[in-house]
Design a protein around this nucleic acid. Structure first.
Lengths: 176, 176
DNA sequence: TACGGTTGGTGAACAGCGTTCACCAACCGG
DNA sequence: CCGGTTGGTGAACGCTGTTCACCAACCGTA
């Protein structure tokens, strides 16, 4: 609960983010992180209770970043859903390791900074016209596309722009 | 390439599947697997080159299983897409650890048993009317729903039946 | 029948992981 | 000056995947 981090703690979270994005999850070990910051591994535990807390801090930052990116994307856009999908896809492609950390495997919401997930989700709910079921379906579609794309699950010759377009059309308010 | 496994090899793959489903990915270690089969860990390497090969063998089996489940689901169904979605969702819910192993993180197709992935995908392409873009979008939607559901990412009060229905309607042939 | 190669097992070891422990130096307020 | 907190340390524990040298049993052939 003492969501406040020491300056060293913030430094560690920032370094973890860099390490993760540069080398992937394998590269993000407590020893390597500590080394980056010029300290030994046990010292990390003076600032963060465990590795999960470190990851949740990185994830919280990322959700906050997502929220501002999404808000900017819909701002003044005619096709809000399309703009949002583009921003979503771009975020995942630009930060694949980070996106996987955020979305892969169960997430302990209690360890996330409060409100940060809802802030990222809000523009989508608005863009589909307030229909919660449609928002969840659209989110599932976007997440599925994004994760399958960055994981290289689609055939190399697949026209992903077309698949995205097909899904976006399906969830535009009033459709289906 | 010698896709043929020794009897012991098959025994190991079967035990790995049981271990994975019972205890999750943490429980699936080479030592614990070996112990289950009454052998020591280095012995496993006489039958399988490494842990990734073991996992790919489990995944190949699972895809083959999926393929027969999906074929059975669409067989004689009026709403093929709906039937397929139900079967997909049921598979993921019934085998969450297995489903995560199959779909989470990049997959080295070269290590999969040939054709097994395409066999699982075929019924969907048919159900959606042969449109590859729509099939990919529908797959992304189904995967997104399934993985978010088994990972507990939706709010506990979310009406997931409704979200599934909304997405299925969106991808029915002719829609959008 | 004796021999040689393959098959499949073993214990020991290595490097790396997250984490805990006892310890200690420096700082800071009373 | 003194006591407590803060933040660092090296050593260690148990776990991981994996490699190594070794060895016993089997099996086909000379």
């Amino acid at each position: 609960m003492p969501d406040e981090l020491s300056p060293r703690g913030r430094e560690l979270v920032a370094a973890a983010r860099v390490l993760l994005e540069a080398e992937g999850p394998e590269g993000l070990s407590m020893r390597r992180l500590a080394e980056r910051v010029g300290v030994t591994a046990p010292s990390v535990y003076k600032h963060l209770p465990d590795k999960a807390a470190l990851e949740h801090a990185v994830i919280s930052d990322a959700f906050a970043e997502m929220a501002v990116a999404f808000a900017a994307a819909v701002d003044g856009a005619g096709d809000r859903l399309g703009a949002l999908a583009t921003a979503y896809r771009r975020f995942a492609s630009a930060h694949p390791h980070l996106y996987r950390l955020m979305t892969t495997r169960p997430l302990d919401r209690g360890r996330l900074r409060a409100g940060v997930e809802a802030a990222a989700a809000a523009p989508l709910v608005a863009a589909v016209g307030g229909d919660a079921d449609a928002a969840r379906a659209a989110w599932a579609f976007a997440h599925g596309m994004a994760i399958l794309e960055i994981d290289g699950r689609f055939p190399p010759d697949a026209d992903l722009d077309a698949a995205w377009a097909r899904g976006i059309a399906a969830f535009r308010p009033g459709a289906a």
